[in-house]
Nucleic acid binder design. Structure first.
Length: 417
RNA sequence: GGUCCUGUGGAGCAGUUGGAGUGCUCGCCGCCCUGUCAAGGCGGAGGUCGCGGGUUCAAGUCCCGUCAGGACCGCCA
């Protein structure tokens, strides 16, 4: 007998079928008991007239052969009757928290300590499916625009890419580092394929224990050649985010907010004014980002807002200055519901400009030889972005903490499970 | 790295000027029960109040230390 999923029951009225999954909940009454089985698709109700026939406890894995019986009293209009139940895997220990509630009541640390169990909960599981759909939309949209997927090394020699701290490794007796970004490599690959993207982990050794930080997170990177300026990058990013949200809705039915074809954009100087920040601030503080998010919703009806032209002095050395205002970057951040989820921009592309920028930063050129070679041998004007997947998904579904949308989050205090 | 907050049966919480391990919602076990929907009713078990020290006649409560966790900031996606 072929196994079917819980959601397919309605299509098999009066047939004998096999459903398999986890014991979600048991409700025992005087003359009848209900066994709720949870599988990948959803829940199925099994009706038992002999309570003794049911010995399995919650989260045990069972196989149920029974007859699909339409019944107006049953959830979704169908239930399984006259079942024969086989227990694949019996659970004989108490569960650390209740799994059958509509929402998990355990605190996040408790959930994370028991991730293998907590992630089974429909609410946690749904977030992972939404995340997967967003990534699928990312890939589909970029591939439709001539981008090629690449895989860059996560073990790297140089720790000097930007100001962020890196994790050091013992690489056969010499130091190596976990990559904090695929930045250098995706730029090199623009010289090969013109348009590239990568979905992969990045590592940040920042002791930042907040609701929006992880020490390992998934970066959705893209980089494209032959651009006229950062506005080309901005347009492609807007298209990509729209494609991601469309795929989330397509696959999961989750209602995503509209992505405006022209996301409102404000210059950094104007952003400071809107946020009520001092004019000499070098960056936007989280409170300022929240204020800008509210402003975009209020003034433009948009959940998104671009902030362009951050001061060059706070940006990494490969940042291309705005041709009209060289003290500001030809780049931008994307804020989604008041949180920075993307950093993007145009990069330098001439060898001499890199030599000057690295020298000005006091960096030894020799450490960047493999990187600088690309520019010595000719690179087009280019730019790109990095989306923080967990931040985007957390904001999308209203999760207060990025750990809620990460299966096994890594933070300064947690390396397991 | 900084500031602040919290540790009380399995989960989530309350516990007042210091006065008996007291209480709430749920889970668990037992019994009852008109087909339940986060079922409902009755009863029961389950505790080194994170740990160590101090003050006091008396500490879950006040003080010091320590461990664990959390929120925010800096920084960043």
């Amino acid at each position: 007998m072929q196994r079917i999923l819980s959601t397919e029951l309605a299509a098999h009225p009066y047939e004998k079928v096999r459903v398999e999954g986890w014991v979600h909940r048991i409700r025992r009454l005087k003359s009848v008991s209900f066994l709720i089985v949870r599988d990948a698709a959803g829940l199925a109700q099994v009706v038992l007239t002999d309570p003794a026939a049911l010995t399995a406890t919650e989260e045990s894995v069972v196989s149920v052969e029974a007859t699909v019986t339409p019944n107006a009293q049953a959830p979704n209009g169908v239930e399984l009757t006259a079942p024969v139940i086989h227990v694949h895997s019996a659970v004989d220990v108490p569960l650390p928290f209740e799994m059958h509630r509509p929402e998990l009541t355990a605190s996040l640390p408790t959930q994370l300590d028991h991730a293998a169990l907590a992630l089974r909960h429909p609410a946690r599981r749904a977030a992972l499916r939404i995340s997967a759909a967003a990534v699928a939309g990312f890939r589909a949209t970029l591939e439709a625009h001539r981008f090629v997927e690449i895989h860059t090394p996560k073990i790297v020699e140089s720790a000097t890419e930007s100001g962020a701290n890196v994790f050091e490794l013992d690489y056969f007796g010499r130091p190596a580092y976990l990559a904090q970004s695929p930045q250098f490599y995706k730029q090199l690959m623009v010289g090969v394929l013109e348009r590239v993207f990568e979905v992969g982990p990045v590592f940040r050794a920042e002791n930042s224990d907040t609701a929006r930080h992880l020490t390992q997170y998934t970066s959705l990177d893209a980089e494209m050649g032959f651009i006229d300026g950062h506005r080309d990058v901005m347009a492609m990013l807007t298209t990509t985010v729209a494609g991601m949200f469309a795929e989330v809705t397509e696959r999961t039915g989750y209602a995503t907010p509209e992505v405006p074809s022209e996301i409102p954009a404000v210059h950094f100087v104007e952003a400071l004014r809107i946020a009520g920040a001092p004019a000499d601030e070098p960056d936007l503080a989280p409170a300022h980002e929240r204020a800008l998010g509210e402003w975009a919703r209020r003034e433009h009806g948009s959940e998104f807002v671009y902030v362009t032209g951050y001061p060059m002095r706070k940006r990494p050395f490969y940042t291309h200055p705005d041709p009209d205002e060289p003290s500001y970057a030809s780049g931008f951040d994307l804020l989604f519901r008041g949180l920075e989820i993307v950093t993007a921009g145009r990069r330098l592309h001439r060898h001499a400009d890199y030599v000057a920028a690295l020298s000005a930063a006091g960096e030894p050129l020799a450490a960047y030889q493999g990187y600088l070679d690309a520019f010595r041998y000719g690179m087009p004007p280019h730019g790109g972005w990095a989306i923080g997947l967990e931040r985007l998904v957390a904001r999308l579904i209203g999760a207060a903490n990025v750990r809620e949308v990460t299966a096994f989050p890594r933070d300064p205090h947690r390396v397991a499970p």
